[in-house]
Design a protein around this nucleic acid. Structure first.
Lengths: 341, 341
DNA sequence: TTGAAAGCGCTAACAG
DNA sequence: CTGTTAGCGCTTTCAA
């Protein structure tokens, strides 16, 4: 039990351990452990004494060691395409708040919309022995699915629906949501539609749904404009410019998210193009910017925050051994009409 | 060395260990360890053989155990006020990208601008034995500073400057930046200024700098409007409305960040108020929205992304035992003139 | 180039 | 209510 001399290049001062506190307080280290984890199982005097030593010595338990011994890290990992854009921020916020309320911490990973990056992150997080994992979308590499199955940790897929979830699911039907917007725009009298979005699976599903609705109504094949990663606002401005200049027949555009749509609205304002007079604009997700931009955006309201909350609650139920009453949860969507259509 | 029967309520399948791989490959577990960590120290045949077993068995090393034994987790924690807003997103992105390039992962914490929350996060992260820590701002509780000193881990403070950093620093002078904007606006002929921002220390410093500049020029005391947390766009709209309605003399407003300023621009557009004719608007940070909104925002350009990159490089240098050539790094700022002033 | 022994700091299970 | 014993899975000497 002798301490070796300090040699590590990180030069981290030898941290105080439970042993040190126990010695100082004249108890065994397991008692210190109990004071921290199950204080009700320790006599009040002992507890008070130990607690005062913990405080005065500035003892911080090594969660690495604790996690190794107990096989629970109290860490949940979330993997999102990106946090730079606000689309997933609400979900992450809901997740993070609910988890931290229950003593869990959130480890965040970004894929940049790459499935291989997701696989790498999943492996890294399994290596960290996270207690649970939240994934964005339902499309994953075979390797990801297999790793997750093998690890046997609770998983929640989000932001979409599927017949064959890996484990649990909290999302909504992107295809249906797209169709609903198609129906809505057609119902408002628009006939030549465009869809502007990235090539992520959920955006594609929304496009497919919208297209289906339009064709069912006998409307023309919608124009499909792809936007690059990067600045959504800028992409929105560029794409609406393209629409205005090269697809003059288009009278309504549905954007993959509100930020792109807001960019489009800004470009229209710049050009003095009337919205919705010359072209109607609809967004997706009801982000912060949707009601603020001029004109306020019609959008598809989804519960991004609720997705995070639900995912957290599902995991928390699993952790505590409770049965998850609804392991597959469709949170729905609704059309929110504002000024832009 | 006998396995206990599976009882854990997490029901995590017994994970494959180095032992299992070693046994299968007919080597000792330490050889497996070498194949993973220092492959050049293993003979090519052994390496190939072990690697194939690692792959086929789907072995994922337990980083908890590794971290415990090696005293390095390859995790860096970053603490920001919030990730929901885009202000710190660029910094986090720079940090995350640079770190992951070098095999480190990022653990993210949000304080909601509360110093006590920061302290709690610092303690939690120290408990996780992160290799390094990135903090936002230079104002921290005594307890935070003391914990950090005691833990002896590398720390980078960001987004501000101070004479007495905890350890390393990558930021810019908020007071000076505010003064520069004050000078600029005064130089453009504006005389009745307002500052709109939150009550975070950096925003306050910018206000103080601006005020100092104005008073030095003999201009009037600036109006100071506080915005609540929450929606910045909305706060911007509300505050400019207040300015327009109750401080009609104000001819220029400086906002704590571009998102608030953009909200203000949107409200002006809604009201048909001329910018900068009736009121000039200036933002801060040169966020994505600044050049896109109508009118494009004059702002203070700072290198949010560079802050993250620099912080990462400082930590990386420390980790590898290299000396950090510039432990205190002033990244500067500059006025970026656009249409809104 | 490979292996054996000895922990890292903690918790689980059992005993007292 | 408190302590003892035995690992958790890995890396670090040190030895072969």
């Amino acid at each position: 039990m002798k301490r070796k001399p300090e040699t590590s290049s990180t030069a981290q001062a030898r941290a105080i351990t439970k042993e040190d506190v126990a010695r100082a307080a004249g108890v065994s280290h397991i008692t210190v452990s109990r004071v921290i984890n199950t204080p009700e199982k320790v006599s009040p005097e002992t507890r008070t004494k130990v607690e005062s030593f913990i405080a005065s010595m500035g003892y911080i338990p090594n969660l690495l060691a604790g996690g190794l011994a107990s096989r629970r890290t109290r860490i949940v990992a979330a993997i999102v395409p990106t946090i730079s854009h606000s689309i997933f921020a609400e979900t992450v916020r809901g997740l993070s708040e609910e988890l931290s309320r229950h003593g869990y911490q959130l480890l965040l990973g970004q894929t940049g919309y790459s499935e291989d990056a997701e696989t790498a992150l999943v492996e890294a997080f399994i290596g960290r022995r996270v207690d649970g994992l939240v994934l964005t979308g339902v499309q994953h590499t075979a390797r990801t699915r297999q790793r997750l199955k093998a690890a046997g940790i609770p998983v929640v897929e989000t932001w979409d629906l599927t017949k064959r979830p890996i484990d649990m699911l909290a999302g909504f039907d992107n295809h249906d949501a797209g169709r609903a917007m198609g129906d809505y725009l057609y119902g408002k009298g628009y006939r030549r539609m465009a869809f502007v979005g990235g090539e992520d699976p959920r955006g594609m599903a929304r496009f497919a749904g919208m297209r289906e609705a339009l064709l069912a109504h006998g409307a023309a094949e919608p124009v499909h404009l792809k936007v690059p990663m990067g600045s959504f606002l800028h992409a929105g401005r560029e794409s609406v410019a393209r629409l205005l200049d090269h697809h003059a027949e288009v009278d309504a555009a549905f954007f993959s998210n509100d930020v792109i749509a807001a960019g489009a609205a800004m470009e229209c304002a710049r050009r003095g193009v009337a919205v919705p007079g010359r072209i109607a604009l609809a967004g997706f997700a009801n982000l912060e910017i949707a009601p603020e931009v001029l004109p306020a955006l019609t959008t598809v309201q989804i519960s991004a925050h609720q997705i995070g909350l639900t995912a957290a609650d599902m995991l928390l139920a699993r952790f505590s051994g409770r049965a998850v009453e609804q392991p597959v949860c469709d949170l729905g969507y609704s059309i929110l009409e504002r000024e832009s259509t």
